[in-house]
């Protein structure tokens, strides 16, 4: 569409009229050659789009469409052999949304996401500001903080599962030696603590991402602003409030929205730490969808729940797009 209307309509008309008035117009190139050149140019324009379009349809379009179609089908293990998947309309959605587990998973997903994002962001920002200062070993310390990001999630969750063990876990031993606790705290096996423990581990994993992006954002703020601010008496908290925060806002919104989308779909950490337990207290929409598809082989219901998650993520993506557009308008 946009390619075909390069020239605004009214101008096109005027040009046409002018051409007619001038007769064949000797100063213009012959229309046939011009048109073929134009056509070739347009062809090339389209050809340049082909790799991107093919990639998008194969790796984004197909899975999304397939998942949507699957959520309206009774898709079971037999489907793989026979290829038959009866159309069932919204049955999968009704089953999944009306199940008593859905509200639990939804609340857990919200708490898990909110908790993780707030924790990651606050600690990440504090560390980013801390590393703004120049001190020895700054670079080495900053790269060491990236470690959680470099470890495979399965490895970190296995290690944390051991650290948080009630009877012989490192954390309880440490707290016990300090005299803070007398008996082991059941971090992963109490319904009231498990979600907090899982959020804690996810914060630990998310800090490097927040730190890195926010640190990059801070480096972009020109020193002159702080110099000018300090002349006017804006130092410490005041300079953060009036210089750092407003200048950092675009980066902050990117970090938060990406963080929300990454956190909503977290699966491996929860599976590795608690498997959704105890008594579903760490079950999120992502883990429930995984269980439905790959443990109970109800692929249709799993896909329906997966789509619910995609829609929630989309809401945040749209919020982000609107927020960034408003920022540009301002």
């Amino acid at each position: 569409m946009t390619l075909a209307t390069d020239i605004p309509q009214s101008e096109g008309h005027a040009a046409g009229k002018a051409a007619r008035a001038n007769g064949t117009g000797a100063e213009q190139p012959p229309p046939k050659r011009r048109r073929s050149r134009q056509r070739r140019e347009r062809l090339f324009q389209w050809l340049f789009l082909v790799p991107a379009v093919v990639y998008m349809t194969l790796f984004f379009g197909y899975p999304v469409v397939k998942n949507v179609v699957m959520s309206f089908q009774e898709y079971t293990t037999s489907t793989f052999f026979t290829g038959e998947a009866p159309w069932v309309g919204f049955t999968n959605y009704v089953t999944v949304l009306s199940s008593s587990l859905f509200s639990t998973s939804l609340v857990n997903t919200v708490l898990f996401t909110l908790g993780s994002i707030i924790g990651q962001f606050v600690i990440g920002l504090a560390l980013a500001i801390f590393f703004q200062r120049k001190f020895p070993l700054n670079g080495i310390l900053r790269s060491l903080l990236l470690l959680p990001w470099l470890l495979p999630l399965i490895v970190s969750s296995a290690v944390w599962r051991w650290i948080l063990d009630k009877d012989s876990g490192a954390l309880n031993r440490f707290l016990g030696d300090l005299g803070i606790i007398e008996t082991g705290v059941p971090w992963l096996t109490s319904t009231s603590l498990a979600l907090i423990a899982v959020v804690g581990v996810n914060i630990w994993i998310g800090i490097p991402f927040n730190l890195t992006i926010l640190y990059g954002g801070l480096q972009e703020i020109p020193d002159e602003l702080y110099e000018a601010g300090s002349l006017d008496g804006a130092t410490g908290w005041k300079s953060f409030r009036h210089i750092t925060w407003p200048m950092l806002r675009p980066v902050v919104s990117v970090v938060l929205v990406l963080g929300v989308v990454y956190t909503l779909k977290v699966l491996d950490i929860i599976l590795g730490l608690t498997n959704g337990g105890p008594a579903n207290s760490t079950q999120t929409i992502a883990t429930q969808s995984y269980n439905l598809s790959f443990h109970e082989f109800k692929f249709g219901e799993g896909a329906a729940l997966g789509n619910v998650l995609v829609i929630i993520s989309l809401v945040f993506a749209v919020l982000y797009l609107r927020a960034s557009r408003r920022a540009v308008d301002e």
Partner: peptide
């Protein structure tokens, strides 16, 4: 132990092996 809620059969074996 209430850790049973999160143990695998391999963990159970480790507890037994360690005399716990």
């Amino acid at each position: 132990s209430s850790s049973a809620l999160n143990w695998t059969q391999a963990d159970v074996k480790d507890q037994f092996l360690a005399g716990k």
